[in-house]
């Protein structure tokens, strides 16, 4: 995507610079009109039109696959996240575990985060795992994520939420399946 964008930028700027510096042409009225129409329709409509169709054809289904729709096989792990000024409260409803500012997840398993807020609007985001979703008072939004590799990740509030916004950080640890089960056992009394 970035390479294509850079090429488009270079092409447009290149054409302008060429138009500025090439020796003035000596066309008659009709030729000028034809050249003009060709540029406007070709460059202004056809090229961007095709790009848009490609982008949408690629982007909409991709976005669709990221939705938390019912899946066959193992049900996604449900984790409840409540954002508040300025911390993250995490709850594992299936295991009855609660924690604050620390999220432990199994790697390789799909997780549905049910995100809500207790005060203002926040946004739940673990950059290296994928997209973000807003935490809005009065609603629960669902975000589906999956950590392919075990390891340490960093989550951060992405919607400005007041004085402590910069320090509203979530430590995320992805464990492999066995280690996660051990962790769960250790947490549940």
């Amino acid at each position: 995507m970035f390479i294509v964008a850079a090429l488009v930028l270079l092409a447009v700027v290149g054409l302008w610079v060429r138009a500025l510096y090439r020796p003035p042409p000596d066309h008659d009225e009709t030729t000028q009109r034809r050249i003009g129409r060709r540029w406007i329709i070709g460059g202004g409509i056809i090229v961007p039109g095709i790009s848009i169709v490609i982008l949408l054809a690629f982007g909409i289904p991709l976005g669709h696959r990221m939705l938390p729709l019912p899946v066959p096989g193992e049900a996604p792990l449900k984790i409840e996240v409540t954002a508040l000024q300025w911390r993250w409260d995490i709850r594992y409803p299936d295991h009855g575990i609660v924690s604050t500012n620390r999220l432990v997840i199994p790697a390789g398993r799909t997780i549905d985060f049910h995100v809500g807020s207790a005060d203002v609007i926040h946004s739940f985001w673990i950059p290296r795992l994928g997209g973000k979703i807003d935490a809005i008072p009065g609603r629960i939004n669902v975000l589906r994520l999956r950590a392919d590799q075990p390891g340490q990740y960093r989550g951060q509030c992405a919607e400005f939420c007041g004085a402590g916004h910069a320090h509203m950080v979530l430590a995320v640890e992805a464990l492999d399946a066995a280690a996660f089960d051990t962790w769960v056992e250790k947490q549940t009394p």
Binding site: I52, L56, I60, P61, H64, L67, P68, L69
Partner: peptide, 14 residues
């Protein structure tokens, strides 16, 4: 037409 096309392929509410 362009804005309306997704109606043909996506479920409405989720």
């Amino acid at each position: 037409l362009v804005i309306g096309i997704p109606v043909l392929g996506l479920p409405p509410c989720p």
